[in-house]
Design a protein around this nucleic acid. Sequence first.
DNA 1: GGACTGGAAGTAAAT
DNA 2: AGATTTACTTCCAGT
Length: 897
Amino acid sequence: MSSYYNETDLEEELSRVCPDEDLEFDYLFEYDPPCSEFAGDQDDPSLGPDKVLSPESEQAFPLEEASPYTIKSCSPSYRQHTSEVLSGYENQEARNYLDNTRPAGLALSPRIEITPSREHYNHGRDSLQNHHLNISPRPTLTVPGHDSLAYREPQCLSPASSNSSASWHSESYSPWASPCVSPSSGQNAGDLCPRLQSIHTGSPRTSPGTSPRTSLTEDGCPGQRSPSSRPGSRSTSPQGKRTYDMYRNPGLIPGHRSRSPSPHSGHEDHNIGAHYTHSSLSDGMNGFGGAQPGLVPTKIVKTSNQVYTLYPENHGDGNYLVSCDQDIKTKSAAEPYFVIPQIWSKPLVSSICSIPVASLPPLEWPIPSHTDQYDLHIEVQPKPHHRAHYETEGSRGAVKAPTGGHPVVQLRGYRGKDPLGLQIFIGTADERILKPHAFYQVHRITGKTVTTTSYEKIINGTKVLEIPLEPKNNMKAIIDCAGILKLRNADIELRKGETDVGRKNTRVRLVFRVHIPQPGGQHVSLQVASHPIECSQRSAHELPMVEKQDMDSCSVLGGQQMILTGQNFSSDSKVIFMEKTQDGQQIWEMEATVDKDKSQPSMLFVELPSYRDTSLCHPVKVNFYVINGKRKRSQPQHFTYMPLACKNAAPPFCAPSIKTEPLDEYEAEHLGFGMPQILGSPSHSYYHNPRNVLHPDNGLLGMASCQRLSSSLPTQDARFQQQSPAIVYSRGGKSLSGSPGVWQTGGMMPDAHRSVLVHTGSPAQSVGPISAGQHPSIIQFSPTNHHLLRTGDTQPLAAPQPDNQQVIYCDGYSTATSPTHTHQQHYPTVIQQQPYVQKGQQKVRPPPETGQMEAPGDGPRRVTVKEENLDQAYLDDGELNEIIRKDLTGVPARGQT
DNA sequence: GGACTGGAAGTAAAT
DNA sequence: AGATTTACTTCCAGT
């Protein structure tokens, strides 16, 4: 298992591995190693759900927890601080997790542990995972380049990389990596955004640590590269290289884990928990630093070549600013590289938003884009293609807008006078929950053409840019400083716990977050994601892309002509309509007729095929894509077949569409919780849909009309995570008054995701507005275990739910209730229609009744909630679907027969 | 000269 | 198992 270093150990070890460094340690944090250790065998199969640690619990860990698998309270200061910082729902939720959802085998300990950088890189999650899994006994202090475990040598980083290059692997804990960046900070509870005025940095444009090719790591190893970086020996993963085979057979993957929280399986839940556990622990501990300076060193490391000047901020509140002008270029090539535990570097620097990371929702968490009061909106979307640059390349510039400018983001509804920090990171664009992308990182662009000041920080291993949102600019920011860095697949896949595959996983989204301070110390977090951005070179030029369709619905009879506008169309382009079930099984495919005579490279004239079932009585959402060749298909677009009976039904079903943005099949298929396919309008606002014009009262109160859904629910389903009621974070344990029920629903949520509530109280309780007075307050959605948790409730949704629990969602469409758990549906047969089949003659294999949720008025139907929501939105072939399915499931698909 | 871009060669992985 | 195809990564050259 792991060992833990005390100060002496750490110092000695660092000195050993960095013999050339004139290391100077100045420990000011108090730590009591002996009492902080995992009390349980990580592999102990007896570890039950009650030993699962949640991400929240890690940051709000109730120290009184007596579980042998949980923290053994060590330092009194830790305890004290914890009780100070973690209050209100946080503590409660921690209990909830501890009681119900802590991943098996996971334990939480405040111990200080130094682990290989890659594991920190892995969102700091896996080190804990590995402990629990006993995957690989190893030293706990690893110096990249000195440890065979390291999959690459961080000291030899890409010259092209700024802080967003390979060095970012360890930036979380290395104060060198990003001197101008605050990996996070531990501030006083009241130290909220905005804090622009207090930022002490050099010009971000002059920061040696933030300019491309001037990173510390570059200077640290000029002319050097990791073996895998050298031409001819790229990514020769010596071990653990993930292959498609592994994805097909997850069992082949040691320590089958996913870096990112995968909402689909209980196993993943555990992983997630582990992930959060570690990262949030770090965060939490750093957060403690503010109030408990004794836990955090005020000085980290002084090398022979550099001294970081720390500027106490706010009079010793634990927040420090680091001069960006420190010369870190003088580091010699031979200078050993080592990492500083994340927990040390956290409080070093400040950033625009100085809210302690521990108090902020993890990047994996779903956050709505707006509340009743605020709306975080992408005014100008980025181009759908942006070729990301590798570490070995120079920057390929900032993400641009289709018009040639840059994306623009605006926070509406903010009346404050203080600027806020807009966070930007690279998120996934697949069918699963939006989360930081494992293979891409935001890359800070600097230069003459960049007008936006930006700052970097690392949050749980994810590079985040922060740019100011200033009232004087109408809270609008031009995102001209965000490039995209591609990390080599082999490197990422080598990380323990990483199960995502890099191959063909080339779509990302820009994710924007803002944390708005509220009276009383709380803050509201909003998040919005851009359209998917294809980051590969090839795809940008070869893949067909649908930019516009002149219609997005028609009657089941089809026959109309639809004009597609886009790029890379060819004479060989085909348009394929398809329908998938909620669990990703394709049940219908139909090639539409393309008028080749009319069609042009940027325009296709398509005759809409009839739907497979012309007798349907509810709108059915399907997808179509343009395919030029075997593997050259566009992103799926959505289309709705209207039943003849309700062809003229009121919107939204029959709402004409100006443009249909690519819709992840996942979302398209699952909006509506299993409805065949309803019109979708994900939160990201990139799906045009009139329904996105939400009523301002689109809050809890508005849920009176919501449908009820039994809680046998798809708790592992990413849909629940895509969005959630606005998360209001309170560090003072007080709920946010003035907001409906202390929280607001995200009106921009995808319909099916919006206003998801879990009623975990007594059956008699309504699911109406929940005020702080009614209940301990905050309904919290946990993406890690896919539960909505409300303070005071102890029943996570993922756990077997009592019948009285209810999940209510308000999507404006029909839903039904299901008192019983649903099962996985299987549609092994694809109904592939041939073009030109006469209407009504198409072979149709109606899906099982429970396979889809019928529209209102269709009579009571069982709500089918798939547990595994593994449909791939844009991967070329169905194989990956299965791969991912297996991957996410970890075990034979639950519920499958 | 450096940043940005587009193209493509070479290699690994998948088929 | 070997051949072919595809995707990934790195490098080069032009702007």
